[in-house]
């Protein structure tokens, strides 16, 4: 008796565990297979490209060369042929990262209250609000960007309004500046912040919020100490969805920035276009992907570790 019971218990638990593992892999396999075949397999082609020499016009020739990877940050000066850091590349990288960070922070500042507001509407109204927020985004990004250009133009709505109420005398030059790019990016990526935030706020347990108030906390403290930690997964998901795509943004910086300052997306695209250097473009893309991937893995480690702590 004393020996058989724990044994059956153990096998039952084992087979349950095995079943759970099987289900898990079954569930995850369609996504992994689709992305693996159509997303990652083709990338091995890009990895190959990055290790070859550029062909005369487009594509690559099948000769090994580490040049592309060195070209990420180094370049031979065209005038005195000394090898040094490529100031053009570094400036463009820095600009892209700053612009993306700025976009993420701004979408969070605007997106958080919006998502919270929607999540605290009566249940029946919430979907309507969600639709109201997303409908503008069913209109193509290019068209929306043109409309934004009309608004921030020298003779546009914003300047007219400001002049009419007497705040300024001469129109502000907003269009074709970094400010316009920032406006455009925030506009373009706002739903990518609002929707994940909403998904995680919608089930916010307000008993905890109330407990916070009961403990003499004021609104600001409750927001910081109770609400934000509770919806953290949503905040992180939103930040990832905004930050990563805006680092590689292509259309918005061109149209609203007037094309005078390149961003990473444009730099990489050029390598596959007029600059005719596919290996360098490939290396740049892989480097960007590697960096983002490392950051993500660290994030997953932390989140799962934190999850285990709180569950255990």
């Amino acid at each position: 008796m004393s020996t058989s019971v724990p044994e059956t218990g153990a096998t039952a638990a084992q087979s349950a565990e095995r079943r759970a593992v099987r289900t898990r892999w079954l569930l995850v396999s369609p996504a992994v297979v689709i992305i693996g075949c159509v997303g990652i397999l083709p990338l091995s082609i890009i990895l190959l490209y990055s290790l070859l020499e550029p062909a005369e016009y487009a594509g690559v020739v099948w000769t090994f060369s580490p040049e592309a990877w060195m070209g990420l940050v180094l370049e031979r000066d065209i005038f005195d042929d000394t090898l040094g850091l490529s100031s053009a590349h570094l400036t463009i990288y820095t600009r892209s990262i700053l612009q993306a960070l700025f976009t993420t922070v701004l979408t969070l500042i605007f997106g958080f209250p919006t998502a919270y507001f929607i999540a605290t509407r009566p249940a029946k109204e919430r979907n309507i609000w969600l639709f109201l927020v997303t409908i503008p985004f069913w209109t193509n990004l290019l068209i929306r960007t043109f409309a934004i250009m009309l608004i921030v133009r020298d003779e546009g709505l914003v300047n007219h309004a400001l002049i009419n109420i007497g705040l300024i005398e001469k129109p502000l030059a907003i269009l074709y500046t970094d400010v316009a790019v920032a406006i455009g990016l925030v506009y373009a990526y706002l739903p990518f912040m609002v929707l994940p935030l909403y998904a995680s706020m919608e089930k916010l347990d307000f008993r905890l919020v109330e407990a916070g108030y009961d403990l003499y906390a004021n609104r600001r403290r409750v927001l910081r100490r109770v609400i934000v930690p509770l919806v953290k997964p949503g905040v992180i998901a939103g930040c990832i969805l905004v930050f990563i795509p805006s680092i590689g943004a292509y259309v918005t910086p061109r149209l609203l920035g007037g094309g005078k300052n390149m961003m990473l997306g444009n730099l990489i695209a050029n390598q596959f276009g007029t600059s005719r250097n596919w290996p360098l473009g490939s290396a740049m893309a892989l480097a960007l992907m590697g960096l983002v991937m490392i950051a993500l893995v660290i994030y997953v480690r932390n989140v799962t570790a934190a999850g285990q702590k709180s569950h255990g």
Partner: peptide
């Protein structure tokens, strides 16, 4: 990492690949 891979590559590169 696999699931998020499409996010991490600039569009133009995914396109060429």
């Amino acid at each position: 990492g696999i699931i998020n891979q499409p996010l991490m590559v600039p569009e133009i590169v995914t396109a060429v690949a």
